[in-house]
Structures are given as C-alpha cells and as structure tokens.
Design a protein around this nucleic acid. Structure first.
Length: 418
DNA sequence: AACAAAATCAACCGCCAAAGG
DNA sequence: TCCTTTGGCGGTTGATTTTGT
C-alpha cells in the first residue's frame, strides 16, 4: 500500500534549505522550468529529492508568494471558508491569492484555532461550545452532517469553478473584447454558470461573494429595499452556518418576497454570549437607547471576530429594512456587538436584553462613510494589498466590510450571480 | 542571566488520485 | 485492465524562536 518514499536513496539531504540550495533551485527553474520534479534535483545539482524541491519552490521560493502577517480580511476569509470547507487547505488557499495552503494551515493551527477557542467557539464546528451534557447528540450529529455535506458541495463547486476559470480564461478574455474590456472574467463565468442553471434562485452565496470581492469592487450607488434585504441576508449568511445553508442554492433572501426572514441558530450555552453586530446610516443605534448601556468603541479585530463567530448564538429576523435580534437567554451575561452596513436606513431591534442582568450592548460606530471617494483604497484592500494605502487597521476593517456590502449592493452582481 | 515552557513554522511523511504506458 | 509514476494534499514533527519565571 502506498508508494515508497521518494527520498529513499542515501545521501539525499533533508532538513532546512540553505541559501545556496535555494539559489540553485531558483536559477534552474527560472531557466528551464521545473519539468519533472523527480528529475530536477540531479539536473539542478541538488542533493535533494524531487518532492523536497517541489515543496520548497511552491511554498517559499515561488515569486508570486506573499509572506508576512495575515490581514484581517484574510483571517476572516480563512475562518469563514474553514467553516464551510473544513481542513481543505488547498481549497481555502485558492481563495487567498499569494498564500500557500501550508502557510494557511500553519496560521490556522497556531493562531486562529486558538483564538476561536478562547472566544468559546468550537474551531471544528464553528459553533459556540455547548455543555458536554447539555447538547443533544442527535442535533450535533445533524449539524456535523450538514456541515460535512455543505463542505463537500462547496469544495466540489470551488474546484470546478477554479478549473473552469483556468481553462476558460483566454477564451473568456477574448469574448470579453467585444463587449467590455474591463469586465472581470469572473462575471462571465458567473453568467455561464447562471445560464447553465436557469432555475437557480437569486441566492446569496458567501463564497461567490468572497470570490467576487477579490475582483469586482464597486462603490455604493443607490439603495433600495431589495438591496437592503439582500444586504441583510448576505450579512446574516456571512454570520451563519445554519442548516438552511447546506448548499449554494439555499435561499436566505428572495428580492420581491416579503417578509424576508432569516432564522439563526439558538445557543443554549450558559456562559457569556458575544452577539454581533450593527452600524446604521446615522451612526446611532437608537433602538438600543432604551435601557442599554451603549458605548462607543473602535472596531477591533476581536470585536468583529467575536461578532461574526457568535452571531449564530442569537435568533435574528429580518423584516424589510429592520433586523430583529432576539437574545433567547435572559439570565446570562451577553455582550452584544452590533455592526451593520452604513447604508442601512432603518433600525436594528434587540430583544431580550436589559441592564439588570449584566448585559452589555457594544455599539460599533461606522464613523464616516465616504466610500465613493475611496474607491482606490477599497480596491487595494479588496485585492489584499492594504500596504498600498495608508490605512489603519480600523479603516482596514471598515473597508473590508464595506467591500462586502458593496458587493451585494452591486447591481451587476445582482443580475449575474444572485 | 539562565533555564523551562510555549509558540511558531519549515519541512517531512504517508496517503491518494490522476496520468500514462 | 493493471501497474507504475508523479504531483498534490493534509497531518504531523521537530528545530528554532519567543516568552515567562
């Protein structure tokens, strides 16, 4: 069973690569390409096995690799994709240009996994941890089955789309020439996909959103009810791994149908809940002003992370332009971090929280939304190149979210994808 | 300053599936 | 159809670095 190790031959070096070895490998590949990895080491004068050379090249020496700290966008993308795909690092890496699967895997294991655990989120299921005795076994296994099903579905689709993109890139670019020189290939692919699936409902697919967000930034143009609904649902979807999201054809929102309702899972955990999120158009969250302790804070990584990962601990309902969040535990500490797109014109209503049971509503303000005048920066952010613009982490965060919301507000994406 | 523990991450290992003879 | 080769993937290891005492 299995094949014998490729480095069986004695005398082949193992362990860390020296700069000299790196140079030899780079020089050879730049001149001749890698060709057969098995034959490469001898030709390049390296005492290494082909597998080791391939790994060294693909993970560290390739010129198109981005190294260094992961941005907030990248972290969030990894977490969300991991919730969908599990430990399919290559599939996740495919959505993070210039990052290798090995690097993402390491980063997950050393940073993100621990962070989620600290936040009370099970890094495997991406759900709030429940009591060992409290959770129903059948329910958990159902969740796991759904998650697995969803992961398989998404993985297969991702791989197929990636292949389609590769294979059709030239063809797509050629065909684009007649209609638009700037339209991303992605859109054409989406149109093809849509045409192949005429019955596909106008669903909001988180992965499509993310994929598109890398290529198709658009400034906010106008708001309408449908867009707001889409935005709400998109947002809810981003925050949810609810059973209804088993496949990309799941439908959280259908423009034109009212009311649009999104039910998020209810948590029974007895520990502190961190529940997310809201901005509103006026930068004030009026509905919270009743008895809530509202505090103005800066948007931090962990605020967003906590909110994104813990939002599913609530029951949330979307009615037209209103989001109702019902917190179904009146006896626990609940920290509510609420963020919403700045284009939301109406309100967010929180129910089930009051001052007398140690609940805190953490209101995160979107200080200024001049998105249309910051398109260039947005583009840089969306392209994962925050270093191109002088932007603080807070601004970075804001732009990340704006880019997501812009995406779902974008009429183009609405017509071709959703 | 010295040591231990923890964290990090480059690299390896074994398995699998596709390709080709 | 079978067998071998190859590249790719995910899990794991262990050397190195960082942090804590």
């Amino acid at each position: 069973m299995g094949r014998s190790p490729c480095c069986e031959k004695v005398g082949l070096k193992k362990g860390p690569w020296t700069p000299e070895e790196d140079q030899k490998l780079i020089a050879y590949i730049e001149e001749f390409g890698h060709g057969s990895w098995r034959a490469l080491p001898v030709k390049a004068g390296l005492q290494r096995c082909g597998k080791s050379c391939r790994l060294r090249w693909t993970n560290y020496l390739r010129p198109d690799i981005k190294r260094g700290k992961f941005s907030l966008q990248e972290e969030q993308t990894i977490i969300q994709l991991h919730a969908l795909l599990g430990n399919r690092w290559s599939a996740i890496a495919a959505q993070l240009p210039k990052r290798t699967d090995n690097e993402i895997k390491n980063y997950w294991n050393t940073h993100l996994k621990k962070r989620l655990t600290r936040m009370g989120i099970d890094p495997t299921t991406h759900k709030p941890k429940t009591d060992a005795l409290g959770g129903s076994g059948s329910g958990q296994s159902k969740d796991a089955a759904n998650l697995s099903h969803m992961a398989q579905w998404e993985s297969a689709r991702l791989e197929a789309e990636a292949r389609l993109v590769r294979e059709s890139k030239l063809q797509v670019q050629n065909s684009l020439g007649s209609c638009s020189n700037t339209q991303p290939a992605r859109l054409v692919l989406n149109k093809i996909t849509t045409q192949q699936q005429p019955s596909l409902p106008p669903c909001l697919d988180i992965l499509k959103a993310w994929q598109s967000s890398w290529t198709k930034p658009q400034p906010l143009k106008e708001n309408n009810n449908n867009n707001n609904k889409i935005m709400h649902s998109m947002y809810a979807m981003m925050l949810s791994t609810h059973d209804s999201l088993e496949s990309p054809t799941s439908t959280l929102c259908f423009p034109g149908t009212t009311p649009t309702t999104t039910m998020l899972p209810i948590s029974n955990n007895n520990t502190t809940n961190n529940i997310g999120l809201l901005f509103n158009e006026t930068n004030m969250v009026n509905p919270l002003s009743t008895t809530m302790d509202t505090t103005m804070v800066n948007l931090q990584d962990d605020d967003i992370m906590a909110a994104v990962e813990a939002f599913r601990a609530t029951t949330s309902t979307v009615y037209d332009n209103n989001i109702n969040i019902n917190i179904n535990n009146n006896d626990n500490n609940s920290n509510v971090v609420v963020v919403a797109p700045s284009s939301l014109s109406n309100s967010v209503v929180l129910e089930g929280l009051s001052n007398d049971d140690n609940n805190n509503a953490l209101v995160v303000y979107d200080s200024n939304d001049n998105l249309s005048t910051e398109e260039a920066e947005n583009l840089a952010i969306i392209n994962g190149d925050a270093s191109l613009c002088n932007m603080s982490l807070e601004e970075n965060n804001k732009h990340y979210w704006n880019s997501i919301f812009n995406l779902v507000n974008d009429p183009l994406s609405g017509s071709s994808v959703f």
